[in-house]
Design a protein around this nucleic acid. Structure first.
Length: 969
RNA sequence: GCGGGUGUGGUGAAAUUGGUAGACACGCUAGACUUAGGAUCUAGUGCUUAACCGCGUGAAGGUUCGAGUCCUUUCACCCGCACCA
């Protein structure tokens, strides 16, 4: 009964089970075949389950995997879960359920959803970052980071013991490192230091270290967040306010790798936009650091600044230090104390958010102190202003208002001198700064007459001779905060003995999470682990109670898939050598500065310490675009009491709120005073309801909108006073249902579950349809309309093989010339298109092929089976079923990709488009064996052409053999 | 402000080195077959027009026999960074 018609439910269930039982997609770490590693960014298993946007990338990578397998590669195509993280813990706090339990439930759901789509994952290699057998190695990597320092001479990480040996022999004078500032000392001094003093010094070298810094503290989440987890002064998850707070934190010294992270980008095949984002984030700038002696005390103290334009040093008319500058109190003189200190206090207390949203107002104060210009000897005033950032460079700048727009604005505001030092005919530097690095130096003593580039070299040389500074490179990249005051993360394998951090032994790994009573943050900034005395307190010390951030486990998971059960090492050398780098990595572009940068950092470190032979983790990266949801809304009016403040729940950006403008719910509660007595709002309608609607008009007699009993409309009902009804041709009242695209999420009630599509149309249809939507990398709205076309295509494909009685039709024999042409055109196009990840055009090509085969009434088994192989990476279930029906006993997944043969495409004639003055006027079929001149003659002698020429003689005839003929008159 | 990207029918989109713009689908319009169904099949469908002509790839110029594609200017939208000295 399942035979005659295409029955996706039966077929897909059957093959998913068969593949699972035969372990079809399991791969070995050794093979005669070359290895090929196809990786998806593994998901965080949230409670909402997968929506149709998630599988987009998995489908594309599955197609590539299956294609590579059929092309003779041994393909590693694993999947796992990024299972530590905040949402599970937030849920635990609300419900008291252990995050491990909810995480496992979510994982089970994800797995079921993925299984229905027919992926060729090798599930025997699954990893979960929250599994102790996995995070044992995350902890192990942390230990290595703690035990290594970055040697700037050898330009790689080296063991800390080597460093200590150097200190014991010769002190640190010859050691160049990437890390904190350290005073010089000699061997005898080192040997005389106490253990605690020694550790303080080593902390400046270690790649994992503790530091007191201002961190992004989120009160609501009770934790510290990384820079990229903060958006516009709020937490990315939840939209809660984030403030600056001083705390002791674990950090990883990613800045040591800044240059290599930059250089490595040139060696990998990633999109330009992601590379650019990373370059931007690393933010390299080349310049010089210069010391400006302080006038009060020129011999003792000097203010160090960083500039990329040392050539403009003669134009420096004042200095600016950040309000957070460590010397700010010393710089402020008694006369200026009142004003300047008040400014510093005000600036320090401004939130990041205020500061960012208020970049146009120029603020600052004079400290009262002066510097001595190292070249002119003139005294120049030192100001403080918050346009200079404490965290960048030295937190101080030399201000050159003539050639820096920010300095210019400041000089204008406070009436400071503007001295032009780069010539420029066009503009007046008193009016606007001239920032461009072009021109000739003037008013600059020995630099006069030099170009900007020449002057930069000359002045740096002079600065270095005078020993007042040096050429320097700065990076925006900051060291990565590595501690989270949360329960649901990897425990940091550190015990404090006499206050000094020490690593636990390898044989004590993994250090597992203990059971806790409450998952709530303590609120003091300590993790819930701190409350468990029996876990924290040891005979010889106390445990670190911070856990690792979410990105720890995901920074190396691609390595564990290579050898997931290994208990001796994170992955065996054999496995690592066989698989090597990830050949093809697919995932969202939103991880550009997080996961993708941290993974590269860890990979480089592991390379330095000899674990990995390669320096970059992901050879080729493709970013799939987001599938947006379709959100529906209706317009409702509200009448409000003017005096009343309306409590409303809106999304994170309150600036966007205006009466009558669409806004979404969830997030923070805000009170917005309203001027208008009446206005309308756009109100969501859940998609479940929309799918049942027959029209986009909601009639009053159908729905009791005010009570929302009929429609699940999400809004604050008691605030709605009336709906302005429209009236249709028949006098019936209705309201329009509108829609637009936005991110798919549970809170927006616009999620489409792939299970529903699989149930109704099948996984093969879902797979084809998601690819058919458009280019993989583009963002696109999800729309169900159009899926029928793909479903029809599969039914047509089925009918090529199975007739109405359920009989298998194709027979072996010599194939029709036309069918061979169709087949080989398809082989050519699909092979090329998979190669450039143009999967949408592959689907079109399949449709064209099936249309042609149907027209040709093609029943040739060899031709149709070759076609099935081409289709199988996209629609594996139907391909496998029809393959089996043809008597094949091995899975189609193991078949060889068809070979393209040019000879089937060779034509002896071509329908030439004949254009006159570039306009196509007619078609003319001509033999391809004709020479250019013969074609020209044929065309000119043709009666229809003569008609078009209307007696005129063409001035010129262009013949492109096999393509086009153009007549110029 | 800086960086990256995108603009093509009613819709999603094709168009390989400049060579028939709109493939393939959705939708729509007719029609066929039907125990009238959201099934299947046939024909049509960029705009304009009765038809021919004409006009058409965000806009304006340019190169070329020929431009969606190359060059210049410009507009709109999306994404990322944002006082980084």
């Amino acid at each position: 009964m399942s035979e005659a018609h295409y029955n996706h439910r039966f077929i897909e269930h059957k093959w998913q089970q068969t593949w699972r039982e035969s372990k079809l997609y399991q791969v070995d770490n050794s093979s005669d075949k070359p290895g090929y590693y196809v990786l998806d960014m593994f998901p965080y298993p949230s409670g909402a389950g997968l929506h149709v946007g998630h599988p987009l990338g998995y489908i594309a990578s599955d197609i590539v995997s299956r294609y590579k397998r059929q092309n003779g590669f041994n393909v590693l195509h694993p999947m796992g879960y990024d299972a530590f993280g905040l949402p599970a813990e937030q849920y635990a706090i609300q419900t008291g359920k252990h995050p491990a339990d909810t995480t496992n439930e979510n994982i089970d759901r994800y797995r079921k959803q993925m299984d229905r789509i027919g992926f060729s994952f090798d599930w025997s290699r699954e990893v979960r970052t929250c599994d102790p057998s996995y995070y044992k190695w995350t902890q192990w990597i942390f230990k290595q980071l703690f035990n290594h320092w970055y040697n700037a001479t050898s330009n790689k990480a080296e063991h800390i013991d080597n460093l200590v040996a150097i200190f014991e022999n010769e002190g640190n004078v010859n050691v160049r490192h990437e890390g904190g500032e350290v005073q010089n000392f000699i061997a005898e001094e080192w040997l005389s230091y106490s253990p605690s003093e020694k550790e303080d010094i080593l902390q400046q070298y270690r790649l994992a270290f503790i530091q007191e810094t201002t961190v992004n503290w989120c009160e609501e989440l009770g934790t510290v967040l990384a820079n990229e987890e903060v958006k516009d002064g709020r937490s990315e998850r939840g939209g809660y306010p984030v403030i600056k707070k001083a705390m002791k934190q674990w950090f990883l010294r990613i800045t040591a790798y800044a240059q290599r992270l930059l250089d490595g980008l040139d060696t990998i095949d990633w999109s330009d936009s992601i590379k650019e984002i990373q370059r931007n984030w690393i933010g390299r700038s080349q310049g010089a650091s210069v010391h400006f002696p302080i006038a009060k005390d020129p011999d003792q103290n000097s203010l160090e600044i960083f500039t990329t334009r040392p050539d403009t040093i003669f134009g420096a008319s004042f200095m600016v230090v950040a309000p957070e500058h460590e010397w700010i109190d010393r710089l402020i003189t008694d006369e200026q104390r009142e004003k300047a200190s008040a400014y510093v206090e005000w600036a320090k207390n401004r939130s990041e958010r205020e500061r960012m949203s208020d970049v146009k107002n120029v603020t600052g104060a004079f400290t009262g102190s002066y510097c001595i210009h190292p070249f002119t000897g003139k005294q120049i005033p030192i100001w403080t202003a918050d346009y200079v950032l404490g965290g960048y460079g030295t937190g101080a700048v030399m201000a050159v208002p003539a050639h820096d727009s920010r300095d210019h604005a400041f000089a204008k505001q406070f009436g400071l001198d503007i001295v032009q030092v780069i010539s420029n005919d066009e503009a007046n530097v008193q009016e606007a700064s001239f920032d461009t690095k072009e021109g000739t130096c003037i008013n600059s003593d020995f630099l006069n007459g030099l170009s900007v580039q020449q002057a930069i070299h000359a002045i740096i040389k002079r600065i270095e001779e005078k020993k007042i500074g040096k050429a320097q490179i700065n990076y925006k990249l900051r060291d990565a905060g590595f501690g989270r005051q949360r329960y649901w993360g990897e425990p940091i394998p550190v015990v404090y003995k006499n206050g000094l951090p020490t690593l636990i032994k390898d044989n004590e790994l993994p250090l597992t999470l203990p059971q806790v009573e409450s998952y709530k943050p303590t609120g003091t900034g300590e993790s819930p682990l701190a409350a468990i005395d029996e876990w924290v307190k040891l005979e010889d010390g106390v445990r670190e109670t911070d856990t690792m951030p979410g990105w720890a486990g995901s920074s190396w998971y691609f390595l564990r898939y290579m050898d997931p059960q290994n208990d001796e090492v994170l992955a065996s050398q054999d496995a690592i050598n066989y698989w090597g780098q990830v050949d093809f990595y697919l995932g969202g572009a939103e991880h550009a500065t997080g996961h993708l940068l941290y993974s590269r950092f860890w990979n480089k470190f592991l390379h330095d310490i000899g674990v990995l032979p390669f320096d970059e983790p992901f050879k080729k990266l493709v970013n799939q675009g987001m599938i947006q949801g379709e959100s529906h809304f209706i317009k409702v009016y509200r009448t409000l009491d003017k005096s009343q403040n309306i409590r409303r729940v809106i999304h994170s950006d309150e600036n966007k709120f205006e009466p009558g403008v669409f806004h979404s719910f969830g997030g923070e509660e805000l009170i917005i005073p309203l001027e208008a007595s009446q206005h309308y709002d756009l109100v969501r309608v859940a998609n479940d309801d929309v799918s049942n609607l027959k029209s986009k008009r909601l009639y009053k007699y159908d729905y009791d909108l005010l009570s929302t009993k009929e429609l699940k409309i999400y809004f604050w009902t008691n605030e709605i006073s009336h709906i302005e009804w429209l009236v249709d041709e028949n006098g019936e009242q209705y309201i329009d249902l509108n829609w637009f695209s936005e991110k798919m999420s549970k809170s927006k009630h616009n999620v489409v579950n792939p299970d529903d599509i699989c149930e109704e149309y099948g996984a093969d249809t879902l797979r084809l349809y998601e690819m058919f939507l458009g280019p993989l990398e583009d963002a696109k709205p999800w729309s169900i309309s159009g899926i029928d076309g793909v479903y029809r295509f599969l039914k047509k494909t089925w009918k090529l093989f199975i007739d109405k009685e359920g009989t298998y039709v194709p027979v072996s024999g010599d194939a029709d010339k036309k069918s061979l042409k169709t087949l080989h055109a398809t082989i050519k196009k699909v092979t090329e298109d998979i190669g450039r990840i143009s999967l949408n055009t592959c689907v079109s090509t399949f449709m064209i092929a099936v249309n042609e085969f149907t027209e040709q009434k093609c029943t040739n088994k060899e031709v149709l089976e070759q076609f099935l192989i081409l289709l199988s990476p996209f629609a594996p279930h139907i391909a496998e079923e029809l393959w089996e029906k043809g008597g094949q006993t091995n899975s189609i997944a193991l078949a060889s990709w068809p070979e393209f043969d040019e000879k089937h495409l060779v034509e002896d004639s071509k329908k030439y488009p004949i254009s006159i003055n570039g306009k196509t006027r007619m078609m003319l079929e001509l033999s391809l064996s004709l020479s250019k001149d013969e074609v020209e003659q044929e065309v000119l002698n043709n009666g229809d052409v003569q008609k078009w020429l209307d007696g005129q003689t063409p001035k010129k005839v262009i013949v492109v053999p096999g393509r086009i003929v153009n007549l110029v008159v």
